[in-house]
Each structure stands twice: as structure tokens, then as C-alpha cells.
Design a protein around this nucleic acid. Sequence first.
RNA 1: GCUGACGUAGCUCAAUUGGCAGAGCACCUGAUUUGUAAUCAGGCGGUUGCGAGUUCGAUUCUCGCCGUCAGCUCCA
Length: 645
Amino acid sequence: MSETIRLVLPNGDAREVAAGTPAREVVASIGPGLLKAAIAVAVDGEVLDLTTPLRAGGAFVVLKESDPRSLAVLRHSGAHILATAVRRLRPDAKIGFGPAIADGFYYDFEVAQPFTPDDLAAFEVEMAKVAAEKYPFVRAEISRAEGEKVFADDPLKLERLAELGADEVISTYTDGPFTDLCRGPHVPDTSYLKNFKLLSTAGAYWRGDEKRQMLQRIYATAFWKKEELDKHLHQLEEARRRDHRVVGKQLDLFMMHHFAPGAVFWTDRGSTMVKTLMEFLRELQRDDYKEIMTPLLYNKGLWQISGHWDVYRENMFLVLDNETQEHDFSLKPMNCPSHHLMYAAKKHSYRDLPLRYNTYDVLHRNEVSGALSGLTRVRQFQQDDCHIYLMESQIADEVERLVRFITGYYDTFGLTATLKFATRPKERVGSDAMWDRAEAGLKAALDRTGRPYQLKEGDGAFYGPKIDFDVTDSIGRSWQLGTIQLDYSQPERFDLWYTGEDNTQHRPVLIHRAVSGSLERFMAILIEHFAGAFPVWLAPEQVRVIPIADEVMDNARDVTARLKAAGVRAVLDDRNETLNYRVRDGETMKVPYMAVIGKREAESGTLALRERGQGKKQDVIAVEAFIERVRSEIRTRALPAQATS
RNA sequence: GCUGACGUAGCUCAAUUGGCAGAGCACCUGAUUUGUAAUCAGGCGGUUGCGAGUUCGAUUCUCGCCGUCAGCUCCA
């Protein structure tokens, strides 16, 4: 025990202390003020609490509130305090796991009676008491036998205990009446938890395994500062306010029906938007892509070749063949096999590569009922899908093009993309040499774009490496949208060839590419990203013409007709309602422009323009000038001046 | 699929311990002709998701089905 370890402080100073010295003493030796502010420490990046005996030396950093890692410590302690409170009020609760997660923490309990919202409120009050009682978090390192005694009544903990290796340290943390099997680290005492909120309760399988029992999970969050908590809660509120299911109804974009679960009914307004998105994509792909349309329903023979029949059948809608009385047919869940059939139907020259087939065909995937959610998780959807057949030597150029294409598309919506480069997984097909080439090709292409990207080792598809595009929306949420996947496997399964310069047959390489993911989900993201206040080019109704009184109706009709003739989606609001009523309705429907026409405007060939979100501010401008302005905004796909809320 | 909550007019929501199912908005009709976020009056609108059961009587209680929502990955 007389061994000493060496700790190097951020300023370069070093401390030699006896192994086993609690971190607290080291911090205190640096300065008493620092000890007060310290939440935890990190040794070579490993976060430890102040009571932990230091066993190894290394870079020594004291974590204060300002360090993001300390927030995870607070939240983890919050989970223990939650369990402490629950145990007081529901002594029968068996404890599961209670980790910190991205935006807060949770704790899983096994209880005979599920928690109610009233329970949650009571737990929250009790947690505040536990915090006020200021119990220190006391770490203890114990033997397996002791552990079995301490957790004799907690079968879930015993299960975890039994899994711990013989050489692992078994530690517990105690705050007042509650002891948990826990690796730590924790804040010094329960009073550190001041700003927290219990959010929701839901079932969660023990160990995430659907074969195991269902536990009751309580989700919560905590922050150091009240303002941060309030901001977080406000953002949750904002997300609810923008919920595409609510906004979609308000703006009359789509509906769902229980006779077609997981499928979307687009209204004329919603379908106008979807068509506008497709037109935009078509324009971008006009020159270099071949848009094709292929069948939706296929004999299982196709799926046996593709491998879907074995590994994906659960997710496919099987269709009964009336003649054989067998489920010999299936709606397609993906486009690639159909595209391969089309490719294979002809001889291809190397001169024709890269050959890019793109489509908007409808796909069906039989998601389990509990997975469905609004437009973001559906059973029937359209992908802006593309399959590119090319020579290996063309990969780098092609991928570079695709990255520019996809990020450029997102830029149009003001969505910021983060790239993730996913490399070979453990389970994979193909030789190492093939993977070396594929990964090198993708990487070279990525580097050439100059875009930063994250490396996700081992996260690739089984048939090839891929680039995923994560997009951040206007309120900071992240969505996985586009993907570029290299595939050496399907060209073999489908026995695809091209004739090379040397007049022999070669295997093409395949790239799968999607930009929006599904158009349905992309619509959901756009609705929430813009909170329904779409850019003019995308808005289902671009201009609403509002005549003040019947005497100017003819003029208003004429202006509407001129707008329509200029390609503007204009609607005449000739309802027998007050001006105020119609202006309010236009604002509620988030129409970008309202063109109000009274006697003065009709006589002078102008209109009084009211812009969405600009309140009373109004410009009186000539009709022609306005038409030009709107056309220009449509043509340039201009974004709203600010993210309208 | 599993756990829990929920399902009342087109929409948002009411309806005391089981006792005639309501309101606002929307829609229709009429009046009003409006200068920038809801004009007034009248009217239409429901097998309370569907189907059983208990009961004199069910929106309410029980069961089954359908659907919606949250969650079921973030490793003591």
C-alpha cells in the first residue's frame, strides 16, 4: 500500500500521493476553494467522485459545474435520489438500472402496480426532501458475499451482481436510507440536486429484452441551474407545439385513418408540398439520372434472390395468390431488387456507367403496431431512392458528387448536415481487400469534399461501408436522413455485369442513395423545422388575396388570376367575413403573403401586402412588382428571413 | 408485438356517486360591405371507436377487438 502514484495537473504541476488516497484530499491540497466547487475528478479521462480512492496516476482534472461531464454525474446521482424517494413511498419496488442519459436520467423499477401521474408528483416532492436532507453519497467496496446480503431483496441487482467478473471491484453507494449497487461516480451529497423534473413514466423491458419482464421506467432530467432546466422544459414545450401531427391538422396537410394504420392521406395542400419536393429533386436529377417506375408487387422468387425472404419477411406485407392459395407475393419494402431486374434486362457498356436509376415508388414495410408514429414511422412511404451502378474506379468521384448533392439539398431548407462515415462491421460479406478498397474510396471522396465527418467504426452495412447524413433542425433536434451505401454484394446475388473496355464482363459496384429518407418523414421534419411557416416556394398556399369589400371583387379576381398565370399558388378569399377575420385566418394558416385589396389599391393597380409574422407592417406595392417578387422567391427557393415561430 | 394512458359532433374539449349527451370553433342560412389576428342572429351536426356482458337504465362498470400516444438503445 505504500505505492505512490503520480497525478499531473492541467497546469503541468505533478502530485505524488499514496495509492488509495481519496480524490478529495488531492483536490483539497490544490486549494480549498477548488474543493468547494469540485463535483468530481477525471484521471486520464475516467470520471471518479471525490471519495474514490485513487489507484492509478495520470492526467488529473477537477470537474466543476462548468464541465459537461459533471452534469452526467449529477444526473446519475439524481437517479439514485429518485430511487431513494420511490423506495420511501413504495417500499415494494424492486430496483433495476438508473443511468444518466443524453438529456437527463431514468430509473427502472419492478412494481406490482404501475406508477400513475399522481405517483410521479409525489415522488418529485419526496426527491426534494431527500435532496434537502443532504445525505452524503458514501462509496463502499464490498465482497460478493456482502453484496448478496445487501441486495437479498432485489433480484435484479443480484442478477447484475452475478455477472460481475471475479476481478471487478464491487462497489455500492449509499445516500441516507438507500443503497445501490453502483460503479459511480456521484456528487458529494444529495443537496447538489436542486433543479430537476420528473417527465414521464413508461414500460421498459428489463435489459431491453422483450422476453424479460416489463419494468416501470421513470424519465427525469436535472440541470445545475434553474435557467437551464427551464430552457430545457421550454424546448420540450416548443417541440410539442411544433409537433407535425398537430400542425399538420391545423394547416390541413394530411390525415390518418384507422382503416389504414401507418399510411398517410395527403390533402390537396399536403400533396402540393410533396409534389413540390419531388419537382425540386427531379430538377436536381434531370440531367444525370434515369427516373424509372417499377412494380409494387412481386413474386417471392425475387425476394429469395435478394435474401429478403429469409431475413426480412417479418417486415414484408405478404399477399395471397388466389390461384395457389399461398402467400407467394409481397409488396416491395425496398427498391433495389426491382432496379436490378431492370439493369439485368440489358447489356451495359462501361461507357454507360455510372448508370443512375432514381425513383419515388411507394414502399411498404410492416412495422409492428407499437412502432408507428405520425409521419415519422409509417408502413407505406415514398423514398427518393437511387441506385447507381458503376465501376470501382468511379467510386470516389461519384461519392463526392453525391455528398455535394445531398448537403446542397439540405442547405436549401436551412438544415445543417453532419456526416458519419461507418466502416466494416464484424458481421460482413466480402474480402478484407474489398473492404480496404471500398473504405479507402469512400474516405478519399469524403476528404475531397472538405466536409468534416465523424468516424463510426464497425457501423457499416453488412455489404459495404456507408456515409450517413444526420440533420439538425431549427430547435436543435437531430434526424438521420440521407445515406450513401457502397454495396459489392447485391451485384453478385443478381448476377449483374457490364462489358469493359477489354470486351470482357465485369461486376459493377452498387451505390444505394437516399436523400430525404422517406418523403413522409421528411415532411414531418420540415413541418417541425419551420413550425408550419414554410418558405414561399414550398408553401401550399403562397398568396391569399383578400378584397375588403364586394366593390373591389372584380379587381381581386383579376389579381388572383394574374398571380396564378404567373405560376403562383394564389387563393382568393371571397368569404363574407370581416377583414379582421380573414387576416386572422391567413395568419393562422401561415400563408406567407396576404394581398389586401381595397378601393385605393384597386384604383391604383396596387395591393396592400401583409407578410406572415410581420403584423401590421404593410407595404403598398404595384401588382406587377409583387408578382415578380414572389416569382423570384419561388425561383431561388428563398428561405424565410427568420425561422418564424 | 409488449407495458401503460387514451378514444364523446369536422376540430378542441365538457358531462356530479351509472339517470334525457353539452360548449366554443368550423359548416349552412340570413343580416352586415368591412382598411390588417375572431361582426351579429338563427340553424345543421352524435348508434359516445367497434362488439359483447352486468344493470330497470351504460359515455360512465367488466371483457374482447380496432386505433392513437409515450416508452421498450444509451449497459450496476
